[in-house]
Simulated assay, not measured.
Amino acid sequence: MKEFYFHKKMNPLAIIERFYTPGTKLYQILVQHSLIVSEKSLEIARSLIHLNPDVDFIKKAAMLHDIGIYLTQALSIGCDGEKPYICHGYLGRKLLDEQGFSPEYGLVCERHTGAGITKENIVSNNLPLPQRDMVPVSLEEKIICAADKYHSKNPKHADKKITTLQIIDELGKIGKDHAERFSRWAEEFKL
């Protein structure tokens, strides 16, 4: 039986450093973005205390949500992997699963892209992803996915303030379902 590492024992920076070299451009971009997403996620979670979100899990999972980016091609942020950038979520899940972490962490990675990606989106757009739903399910997944949309990893846009309406507009360009899903979260989370 596989033993999982649960979040009480986990150090997200130590996990990131298994795959990223401290001091490199990519490490700095990833850690800075992850810290910002973690803080935004905690801000959202604090406003939803009545729903009892797992704050410790959110803090750590938000730090790890983009761990798979180095395996993808995104030269603007220093990623020179082989896969298209859209693959970073499921690749992050695979990394964390292979390391033996509780599956909930990998699901955050896999389900945070866009406002989640449905199997129908994958098939109809011929996306290079496993054909399964990758849409946030748990409250914690939804919080981290929503928080992620408020900050860009791209250094050209990292300091830019992103509004909820801008996020909805951008997600609408991907697909109506993405914009509608995020709109529901924005209303529920009072973003």
Rank of each mutant, 00 (worst) to 15 (best):
Y20V: 02
M134I: 05
E3V: 11
Y90Q: 11
Q131E: 15
S76G: 03
P22L: 05
T118C: 05
V137P: 01
Y5S: 04
Y150F: 15
G78D: 02
V123Q: 13
K156H: 13
S102N: 14
P103E: 07
L127M: 14
H112D: 07
A115C: 09
R46F: 14
P53R: 08
P155N: 08
A14V: 02
K40S: 11
I86T: 06
K60I: 02
A146F: 13
G106W: 12
P12F: 02
A158T: 06
I36Y: 13
I29C: 01
V137M: 13
C145P: 01
N125P: 01
F6E: 11
K160R: 15
F57S: 03
F182M: 14
Y20S: 02
D56K: 12
I86G: 05
L127V: 06
D97T: 09
K190G: 09
I77F: 08
A146V: 11
L165K: 14
I167S: 00
K60D: 01
E170R: 12
V108M: 08
G92N: 06
W185D: 04
G100V: 06
I168D: 00
K94W: 07
F4Y: 15
A186M: 09
Y105Q: 03
S183E: 15
G89Q: 07
Y70V: 02
V31G: 04
F57V: 03
K94F: 07
K190P: 01
E39M: 14
A186T: 08
A158F: 15
H7C: 04
K161E: 14
D80T: 12
P103D: 05
V135C: 06
P136V: 05
K119E: 15
I144Q: 09
Y70Q: 13
R181M: 10
T118F: 09
L26A: 01
R132I: 10
T118M: 07
I122V: 13
R181P: 00
K25L: 11
